[in-house]
């Protein structure tokens, strides 16, 4: 039953390899839909933009909104907070980049490139270390050494422009793309 000449053997080997290879291609093709189904669905992708009314936010106060399932910080900064943020030398920062979705990637982290209107700071409230939500600093309840935010999970301290100053977080809090629809209303995403 196994009387194969070497020629027949070669042909048989070829057929084995060919069917094996095609089978592997088939399995790989089937794998993709099974993997891709876990990516965000069309419905999740469509929920892009949020419109937010900001008139009620007092100076020195922050309100947290939910945007794409994440906390969105909108902080109305006091003149002192703005001044302290502007006074920092960008080159001395742990992360000198603006991290602003509306600006090119290599923009330096000046206060002007972090906040379109100095009074309003809009940030994705996700610590760049491991994703906790940092606590905001306020006059009556200071958090961290830099007057901005402190992440209680692992001690990352951010300044009043949301830039990382101390702790394990590698980069500044992200600024999402947003536009002012009026003086009191912004559209995020």
């Amino acid at each position: 039953m196994a009387a194969t000449t070497s020629d027949a053997g070669t042909r048989r080997d070829f057929l084995y390899v060919a069917s094996g290879a095609m089978g592997a291609v088939g399995v790989a093709a089937v794998a993709w839909p099974l993997i891709d189904q876990m990516n965000p669905s069309a419905a999740a992708l469509a929920l892009g933009t949020s419109e937010i009314e900001i008139a009620s936010i007092q100076s020195g106060q922050q309100i947290v909104f939910k945007h794409r399932g994440l906390p969105l910080f909108v902080r109305r900064r006091t003149p002192a907070e703005i001044a302290s943020a502007k006074a920092v030398d960008v080159n001395s920062l742990p992360d000198p980049l603006a991290r602003n979705a509306a600006l090119p990637d290599n923009t330096p982290a000046t206060d002007a490139s972090r906040a379109v209107k100095p009074e309003w700071l809009v940030l994705i409230g996700v610590c760049t270390h491991l994703g906790c939500t940092p606590t905001v600093s306020a006059a009556q309840q200071p958090q961290g050494e830099y007057g901005g935010w402190l992440c209680h999970c692992h001690g990352s301290a951010y300044d009043t422009a949301g830039r990382i100053r101390k702790g394990p977080a590698p980069s500044n809090l992200a600024v999402p793309a947003y536009t002012f629809m009026s003086d009191t209303r912004i559209k995020v995403g």
């Binding site: 039953m1 027949a8 048989r12 069917s19 089978g23 088939g26």
Partner: peptide, 20 residues
């Protein structure tokens, strides 16, 4: 794709069973 795979498997099948 499946027809091509079936074709090549049929060839392999005939080959394997030729002597059996």
């Amino acid at each position: 794709f499946l027809l091509a795979l079936a074709g090549i498997l049929f060839a392999a099948y005939r080959r394997v069973w030729k002597d059996a």
